[in-house]
Design a protein around this nucleic acid. Structure first.
Lengths: 248, 248
DNA sequence: CGAGATCAATACGTAATACTTATGAGGTTG
DNA sequence: CAACCTCATAAGTATTACGTATTGATCTCG
């Protein structure tokens, strides 16, 4: 993952992309009427070529579009590639965090049960082993109250499962799901000691996948997500009605 | 949507992006050991700056990565942003078409029922009206055997439904779903006269959404997708085992 | 008042040049 | 001989500058 600004080696492109991207997501450029390349150059102190490369990337995400004589225009949010990992990350990092978490939870509710069912058909023995190993890890660290280690196993579990589905579209959601799980542990509320019921459900999924029981894998995964969704709704009581976004 | 090469006005960037992108997806550059910017310049007859802009976009899709002294490298396919609309389109256009269609069908199976359930809670009266209008359109054109008009109403139905879910991640799948539906009509097999059962199920979804019956909307949508999935499997009998991709 | 010519703003595309850094070859040393 | 250092060099990185082309706005003329 390309870093933003922290040391390593400075990367002007990644850096400005990150800044302009978050600025756009936050709506900090919504009121700029005549957005032009020149303005991007000045705002971020970069050369024309560098600015163009950044704008081209945002264009590829359907966030911007630029035309001759008219300049750069911010496209309506409804046209953005909402599934782009960067865009998701930017939204999670901003004021839309709660809304984005809700949307992601809904996406997980849709995808993960189907992925579990597919995994029951496609998972290799190695993947099954990794799933049970992750469950054991969750159980041990969960009982010990080591939330950080628990999170690592939880992330591993869901990552392996998405891979094992054999569907590359599902697999590409791995990082995003990991980020949601991490967010739950780090920023938002997570019980001091994970629910034993949750761990049991993970075990059920692992077992169902290992025995090729797609229906049970599906059902158990639904259980996990129902729990996650209610936890989400507990943390953000007011289910934001979708139109409270920053701009339009 | 930025055109590839057809008239309008020539767009070098979009053009080369399209060519390089499809070349990469098709694996036509897999054997090029030392991919370099210079090679991109020569291969497509463009300047360095133009080549860099294209490469930067592919980098943003996690298809390429470039480092000093070492050049451009093609990242393993498992790391590509498989949900990027362009990447999906390129795969649909190439040898991986069948596999991509299967993956997309699985994604639809996951997403659309949940979207329908959400729509049952969030849909506006206007959206409900559009849904029923689309169903009526499907019914009329379906009975008349006008597949092209039928397709238009079908696309409209699923588009409105995804929008009405109130989840921007779902909504951003609209174009992809439309493309799958279009593909079914244009390239692959589609009965000369759409199944009346399919139309009835669409009507059920519309009604359930209108009455706020999430469970029934979910169930009816599952019915639609089950039908679509079996049609897919009929068209491509051998369920390709996920690793028959072009390269690794 | 409307249609067509003109103008000017802005992105597009190319080119040339200097900078930076990572890597691998080759040497040095223990 | 292995571990480490050094250094030339091959790439990408970033800047600047220039000419082109498109297109929205404005002006002109019938």
């Amino acid at each position: 993952m390309s870093d933003a600004s922290p040391a390593g080696t400075p990367d002007l492109h990644a850096d400005v992309l990150e800044r302009l991207g978050t600025d756009l997501v936050a709506g900090r450029l919504a009121d700029v009427s005549d957005l032009r390349l020149e303005l991007v150059e000045e705002r971020y102190g970069i050369s024309r070529t560098a600015a163009r490369e950044v704008v081209r990337v945002l264009e590829a995400m359907s966030v911007l579009s630029s035309r001759r004589r008219v300049g750069i225009t911010i496209r309506p949010r409804s046209e953005w590639n909402a599934l782009d990992p960067r865009l998701i990350r930017w939204r999670l990092a901003g004021a839309e965090r709660a809304d984005q978490l809700r949307a992601l939870s809904e996406l997980r509710t849709a995808v993960e049960p189907v992925a579990a069912a597919l995994a029951a058909r496609h998972a290799t023995p190695e993947q099954c082993g990794e799933l049970t190993a992750a469950v054991i890890g969750m159980s041990v660290t969960g009982q010990a109250g080591d939330l950080e280690a628990y999170l690592a196993h939880d992330v591993r579990f869901h990552a392996v499962l998405l891979q094992a589905s054999g569907n590359e579209l599902f697999a590409s959601l791995t990082d995003v799901v990991a980020e949601v799980l991490a967010g739950r542990t780090h920023h938002d509320l997570m019980p001091a000691r994970p629910e034993p019921a949750a761990i049991r459900l993970h075990g059920d999924v692992a077992e169902a996948v290992a025995t090729g029981d797609a229906a049970r894998a599906d059902a158990a995964m639904r259980g996990i997500l129902a729990e996650a969704l209610t936890a989400m709704q507990r943390a953000f009581p007011a289910p934001v009605p979708a139109d409270a976004a920053v701009q339009r």
